[in-house]
Simulated assay, not measured.
Amino acid sequence: MTGLYVGSTAPFSGKNLFIAALGLHYKRKGLSVGYMKPVGASPAKDAATNALLDQDAAFIQQVLGLEQDPGQVTPVVVTQEFLAKAFASGCGDMMAQVGESFRTLSQNKDLMLVGGSGDLLNSGKYCGLEGTSVARVLGLKTLVVDRYGANGINYDAILAAKEQLGDSLAGCAFTDVPPEHLDEVRGFIQPFMERRGVPVLGMIPRDPFVGGIAIEDLAAGLDATVICSPQATDTIVEDVLIGTMQVENFMIHFQRRTHSAVVVGGDRSDIQLVALEGGCPCLILTGNLYPNGMILSRSETLERPIVVAKQDTYTAVRRIGHVWQQQKFRDQAKIAKGAELVASALDFPALERQLEM
């Protein structure tokens, strides 16, 4: 049995995407694939059994067509009760529980994929389950995923992982790399990392659809109300356009970004109508102001949801940015598209050499 631990330099970097892509790839090649997420931070109750589970792990099981015991897949689910006990009296030997679950799940498997939680170096340290320790105890090689951010690639965190993991670091992969920075990453960062003994196994370019977010998730993140066309709130929006300008200027920007949700004051019916007629997937009206009857009617006819937010436009846009940054890959269409991107960009032969497959 071959195993791989997938960790990241920070939360929300694309671990689930890589787990799904790798699992689907190797299942298509005929391998028996197992999955585990030792520590889960998204607790929920199973609808059928009322048992505690992790939402991310449940989604990945669904994507990979697995029916493993959720309690084995995620033996440690972090709840408020778990944290209270950990801080008051300690957690006990959680690693032994993780090891037992891993041995059970890996039976008769060709490949075992283990997903990290939070960031590889620090998350879970309070209970002895930080990613580097888990990978080491389970005897797994590690792939570190880093999402291109405001400051570029987090090479310091990757090198820190190399120091801790040594030769058991299989390599790193970069996600959400803007197309205009791909040459820079290939020309400077990749050679630097490889000189330091860290293979760069893939660079996943930024994709508007994969990086988009469902309207219903935007509404939930804003604590806002969907007042029209709720049946279409599973639509993915790729960006947000702020409609505070004059109509003529708005049209110039909107023509280049027609898959964007438009954030606009509830009293700006001129912008609202132009956006709806131009194919805008969603209006987000700020200031807790409702639209007039004509806008409501067009929204229903065109099946374009309208979301009413309590916040002013500036606050709503900041909140949307936060929600966008912390979104998780729990949408089947996005996972399918993202898996295609990973499959086309990841150096599978190099990864397989690292794993001795």
Rank of each mutant, 00 (worst) to 15 (best):
Pro281Ala: 02
Met1Ser: 14
Ala343Asp: 12
Leu83Met: 15
Val274Phe: 07
Thr132His: 09
Ile320Val: 11
Phe192Ser: 13
Ala41Cys: 14
Lys141Glu: 06
His259Ala: 12
Ser344Leu: 00
Asp331Pro: 01
Ala84Trp: 02
Ala224Val: 10
Cys280Asp: 06
Tyr290Lys: 14
Gly338Asp: 09
Leu165Cys: 07
Asp146Phe: 03
Val247Cys: 09
Pro191Val: 10
Leu241His: 05
Thr258Tyr: 00
Gln97Trp: 00
Pro305Ala: 08
His181Tyr: 13
Leu296Ile: 05
Val63Glu: 07
Ala214Arg: 15
Arg330Gln: 14
Val114Gly: 10
Gly14His: 12
Met245Pro: 05
Asn108Val: 01
Glu67Leu: 00
Thr244Glu: 13
Tyr155Leu: 08
Gly71Tyr: 06
Ser269Phe: 11
Ala316Phe: 02
Gly197Pro: 10
Asp183Tyr: 08
Leu302Gly: 10
Leu52Trp: 11
Glu303Thr: 12
Lys162Gln: 11
Trp324His: 14
Thr49Gln: 04
Thr104Phe: 01
Val76Glu: 03
Gly221Leu: 08
Gly3Gln: 09
Gln80Gly: 02
His322Ser: 13
Gly266Ser: 01
Glu303His: 14
Thr244Gly: 15
Glu248Thr: 07
Thr175His: 03
Arg195Phe: 01
Gly287Leu: 05
Thr79Met: 06
Leu355Ile: 11
Ala84Gly: 02
Ser168Gly: 00
Leu83Ser: 12
Met245Glu: 03
Lys27Val: 07
Gln190Thr: 11
Met245Thr: 08
His322Asn: 12
Gly197Tyr: 05
Ala336Ser: 15
Gln68Ser: 13
